[in-house]
C-alpha cells in the first residue's frame, strides 16, 4: 500500500497545500512508510464491530435555535489579514 508522487500531488491539492515539486517524491516515501505501518490493522477481525463515532456515553444535547451571541462584528473582524468596510477581503473570484 504505497502512495506515489502523483497521489501526493492529488491529496495536497485536495488539502489545499502547495507542495514544491522537489518535495513530492520524499513525501511519497514518508507517507508510504506511515501507511504501510498502519496497514497492520487489516490483521484485526472487525466483523460485526460497529465503528466508534463518540467515546462519550451520552446523547448529544439539543438547544433552542436562537441567536445567543450577536452584535460581535468588531470581534469577528479583529484578526483578518485584510478587511474593508466590515468585510473580509479575498482575491477576486468572479471574472
Amino acid at each position: 500500500m504505497s502512495v506515489d508522487k502523483a497521489t501526493v500531488a492529488k491529496i495536497a491539492n485536495l488539502a489545499r497545500i502547495a507542495v514544491p515539486e522537489d518535495q513530492l517524491e520524499p513525501l511519497a516515501d514518508e507517507l508510504s512508510n506511515i501507511l504501510d505501518w498502519v496497514e497492520q490493522l487489516s490483521e484485526v477481525d472487525t466483523e460485526g464491530v460497529p465503528p466508534m463515532t463518540s467515546v462519550a456515553d451520552m446523547t448529544l444535547p439539543l438547544r433552542v435555535d436562537v441567536v445567543t451571541d450577536d452584535d460581535r462584528r468588531d470581534d469577528v473582524l479583529a484578526n483578518p489579514p485584510e478587511q474593508e468596510m466590515g468585510f473580509f477581503v479575498v482575491p477576486k473570484v468572479i471574472e
Binding site: 488539502a15 489545499r16 497545500i17 502547495a18 489579514p81 473580509f88 479575498v90 482575491p91 477576486k92
Partner: peptide, 23 residues
Amino acid sequence: DGVRYGLRKEGENLIDMYERTRG
C-alpha cells in the same frame, strides 16, 4: 485559509492564496 485570521500569502487567485498560505 488566510482569510479570517493569521498568516496570508498572496496568490494569483483565491485557491492559489489558500495553497500558498497553507504551504
